Amino acid sequence: MTTVCLLCMKPIGTVLSWQTLLNLEKKKTLCDGCSNRFVRADIIEEGTVLDRVHSLYAYDEPMRDWLHQYKFLQDVALADIFAEDLNKALSGEDIIVPIPMHPERAVERTFAHVDTLLDRSKRPFRQLLEKRTLAVMGEKNRRERLAMEPLFRLKPGAVIEPVTYRLVDDIYTTGTTLRQAAQLLKDAGAVRVEAVTLIRSVQK
């Protein structure tokens, strides 16, 4: 029984067993060579507005290649690679909220990349935020970020409960995006806001 690596497209040999026949064994999405290219970071930071953020992987060359192929070349199947990692990182009873795309960007990209990561991780989530601007935080300096209008607003009819919310985004760069979303949720009644990001980009 053979599957194909989602990155290099080389065959992945799978040993036939009762677990595989009954779909109890985790299906491999990468060959060992491609899998070993990604560097697990597990960076955890705590703050005030954003109470806690957990970033799973380092932003290195293999991850840049993956992100480009996934987001900009619309290779949606690549979301499966990190599905299990996100599933584990998002365990618990917190309300999961994806960082949304601007509607125009969603049309341009043809799919919502954060929503797709969550769908593949089999974690339920709520759409509570709307993106107000097409701006990309990682492309702006500190002064430009501070001068910008708020990035998000609550979706019409969104109800924020006095509980913990967990924001999810693909990459953490400056933290501005997540902090703005966290502040909006707290102002609306959330008692705590945490975040999980697949990637952490350390600015030099």
Rank of each mutant, 00 (worst) to 15 (best):
M1Q: 07
C5K: 04
L6P: 08
L7K: 08
K10Y: 12
P11R: 05
G13N: 15
G13C: 07
T14W: 01
V15A: 12
Q19E: 15
T20C: 01
L21C: 03
L22Y: 00
K28D: 13
D32M: 07
C34R: 05
V39C: 02
V39S: 03
A41P: 01
D42H: 12
D42K: 06
I44M: 00
I44W: 01
T48K: 01
L50Q: 06
L50T: 02
V53F: 08
V53D: 10
E61S: 02
P62V: 11
L67V: 11
Y70S: 06
K71T: 12
V76W: 12
V76N: 00
A77Y: 12
D80K: 14
A83W: 07
A83V: 15
E84S: 00
L86I: 15
D94E: 13
I95W: 06
I96T: 11
P98V: 15
M101H: 05
H102N: 10
H102D: 06
R105K: 15
R105S: 13
A106M: 13
F111E: 06
T116H: 13
T116R: 15
S121V: 07
R123C: 13
F125L: 02
R126P: 04
Q127L: 14
L129I: 03
E130M: 09
E130H: 00
K131Y: 00
L134Q: 15
A135N: 09
M137C: 14
G138M: 09
K140S: 03
R142A: 13
R143I: 14
A147D: 14
A147W: 04
E149T: 00
P150N: 09
L154E: 05
K155D: 13
K155I: 11
G157H: 08
V159M: 12
E161R: 14
V163Y: 04
T164L: 02
Y165I: 04
D169G: 00
D170A: 03
I171G: 00
T174S: 15
T174K: 02
T174H: 09
L178S: 02
Q180V: 01
K186H: 11
D187I: 11
A190D: 14
A190G: 07
V191R: 09
A195W: 12
L198G: 04
I199E: 07
I199T: 11
S201I: 02
K204Y: 08
